[in-house]
Write a protein that binds this DNA or RNA. Structure first.
Length: 589
DNA sequence: GCCGTTTTCGGCCCGACTGTTTTCAGTCG
């Protein structure tokens, strides 16, 4: 296919969005929940693909599309239409019968497809603003099943939507959740408490915080929970469950169960939804029923497990599946076949290969970086400041880089307990070349290269640039390969498949940037990279000494990508790392 | 709409809470 056509071709994210919208419109129209769910599942699957649907289609046409799990004939045909024409006739038809703006109302807490349909049919309401107006003027209470109370709740839901309809970063949610769990654990009536939900799975963004507790006195625990200083409002309260909204606008759900049910509840409450559905389907085939209360032998409903998660999985003949893997992307099959990965941990990390100092745009001195790295128990840390073609970040000139190498040599004298590596984060220009001449690059311990400009370039160009850097024998790591910033900037249109292939061939590592709003490469892509034989470097890109601790977010993301220690070059001891870098064992002084 | 070690048709995970319901629908996770 000529490049000019390729540029206009719909991308995975656009196709996924179209399928999701189809599902949402069908849901509002009152279609079967299974049909709706099929579109939703297809959209989720497509979002997690690292390969472009266009490439898959070019290679194997409709049949290749259908070989993707959850995509059948009908969806494959719609994808084909979108790829070849850039349009989806079925979606356009649906938009004729129902206004597309209705789908945004699904995001209002407490408002679902049935009510949206009701408001549209009876009152012609098509937008959140119109709904708000109707609720304020008492226009909804006349409708069947509605009252003044319902209007009040809808207004609350709209306020919550405006305040907080985007997911928040893992790094924002985690400390808050840890504090809440910590406070609950101090309560005398409490037996156990843990985070659950997407937070326990360490997803990169979090919709709400789920907390699970066990106690013989649930009322007391829920009272204590609702009295926490962070709580602004109690949304719902039942016998076992309490939902609150924090002052920051975040919803926190607490579920309190009996101690003997804790494992089943933790399993259920951790999710993901798709993992649980798959697990429960599997259970049914074994004449078992899994719920948050336990595992039951059917049809007698005899309870056979539930105190621990291990027990729950064991009833299906499975080992405990780590929470980070529970996304129904093959972990249940892998567990059954005894091939779950041996996930790496923070303790496996021996050093950080991408840290900035006050020589360029960051705060800490070389010495402060060294001390922070020593505190983390690292064997090495690489100073990789910006290079001169990025003047906005105070990039180092060749002269300054040489001076910095001397300063690093001096710091190595001062801190014998750690090896400070001389590195650089060079810029990949439009032709795939990088800063500094070969002689200078060769004298460094490690060179990392990044795309820092031209994010909007087309796929061919941005891919070619990156591959140019991968092929450069002096470049060992490609930093933040997709350039995304969560909530701010989309990934650029890079062909990761081609990048993985080149990186594997030239033995160039790709970075997992641990900055909480980057996490780039992301989990799904890490897994694809591993399959392609690519090595990963889990770096922080720290600009403050404290940010070296962001490595924890990188490690959990790596776990979600099924990575093992051997896949990650900075789990290697110094000599092995030097061997991999191919720069010999003589420090560059 | 998808899918198949009971099926190419007939299923599709399971339960809590709210509000307005006198037995349940809608929403949520």
């Amino acid at each position: 296919m000529p490049e000019s056509d390729r540029v206009t071709r719909m991308e995975n994210s656009e196709i996924a969005a179209a399928l999701l919208e189809i599902g949402e419109l069908l849901e509002i129209a009152g279609e079967s929940v299974f049909r709706v769910g099929a579109y939703e599942r297809a959209a989720i699957t497509i979002r997690s693909l690292s390969r472009d649907l266009g490439d898959i289609y070019d290679e194997g046409s409709l049949k290749a599309l259908q070989s993707i799990g959850g995509i059948g004939k009908s969806t494959a045909e719609k994808i084909e239409e979108m790829l070849t024409t850039g349009r989806c006739g079925y979606l356009e038809e649906l938009r004729q019968s129902l206004p597309a703006s209705l789908v945004t109302m699904i995001q209002i807490p407490g408002v679902g497809p049935k009510k949206i349909k009701l408001f549209y049919d009876e009152l012609g309401i098509e937008s959140i603003d119109q709904l708000e107006e109707a609720a304020k003027t008492g226009g909804l209470r006349e409708l069947k099943g509605m009252s003044a109370k319902s209007e009040e709740n809808i207004l609350k839901g709209i306020a919550a939507y405006h305040e907080h309809h985007e997911r928040i970063l893992l790094s924002d949610a985690y400390p808050l959740a840890a504090k809440i769990v910590g406070e609950l654990r101090r309560h005398p009536a409490l037996e156990q408490a843990d985070m659950a939900g997407s937070l326990r799975r360490f997803r990169e963004t979090i919709g709400d915080i789920d907390v699970l507790a066990s106690s013989a006195a649930p009322e007391e625990v829920m009272d204590a929970f609702e009295s926490l200083p962070q709580v602004a409002e109690v949304i719902a309260r039942g016998a076992t469950k309490s939902s609150v909204r924090t002052r920051a606008g975040l919803q926190v759900d607490l579920r309190v169960v009996a101690p003997h049910e804790y494992g089943a509840a933790l399993q259920y409450f951790t999710g993901s939804k798709a993992h649980n559905i798959h697990l429960r389907e599997l259970a049914r085939k074994h004449d078992l029923k899994i719920s948050e209360y336990g595992v039951f032998q059917m049809p007698a409903e005899k309870r056979i497990a539930g105190a621990t998660e291990e027990e729950v999985y064991a009833t299906l003949g499975l080992p405990l599946i780590p929470a980070v893997l529970r996304e129904d992307t093959g972990e249940i099959e892998a567990a059954a076949e005894g091939r779950l990965p041996k996930l790496l941990g923070v303790d496996d990390i021996c050093g950080d290969l991408h840290v900035h100092t006050n020589w360029s745009d960051a705060m800490p001195t070389i010495e402060q970086v060294a001390e922070a790295a020593i505190e983390l128990g690292y064997a090495y840390v690489a100073i990789s400041d910006h290079a001169f073609k990025l003047p906005v970040a105070g990039g180092l000139t060749p002269q300054q880089l040489e001076e910095q190498m001397d300063a690093i040599a001096a710091a190595n004298e001062k801190y014998p307990e750690i090896t400070i590596l001389a590195g650089s984060e060079v810029n990949i220009d439009n032709d795939g070349n990088v800063d500094f001449d070969e002689e200078l690059l060769a004298r460094l311990d490690v060179v990392a290269a990044s795309v820092h400009a031209g994010f909007g370039q087309d796929r061919a160009q941005i891919t070619a640039r990156t591959i140019g850097a991968i092929e450069n024998p002096h470049v060992e790591i490609i930093c933040h390969p997709t350039g995304r910033i969560l909530g701010k900037r989309d990934p650029f249109a890079i062909d990761l498949d081609a990048v993985f292939k080149a990186a594997a061939e030239h033995n160039t590592a790709l970075e997992l940037n641990s900055f909480p709003d980057r996490l780039d490469l992301k989990d799904d892509y890490l897994r694809e990279a591993k399959r392609a034989g690519v090595k990963i470097a889990i770096n922080t890109d720290a600009h403050h000494a404290e940010q070296l601790r962001f490595v924890e977010y990188g490690v959990v993301t790596a776990q979600r990508g099924w990575l093992e220690a051997e896949d990650v070059i900075n789990t290697y001891p110094l000599e092995k790392l030097r061997g991999w870098l191919g720069r010999g064992s003589t420090p560059s002084l």
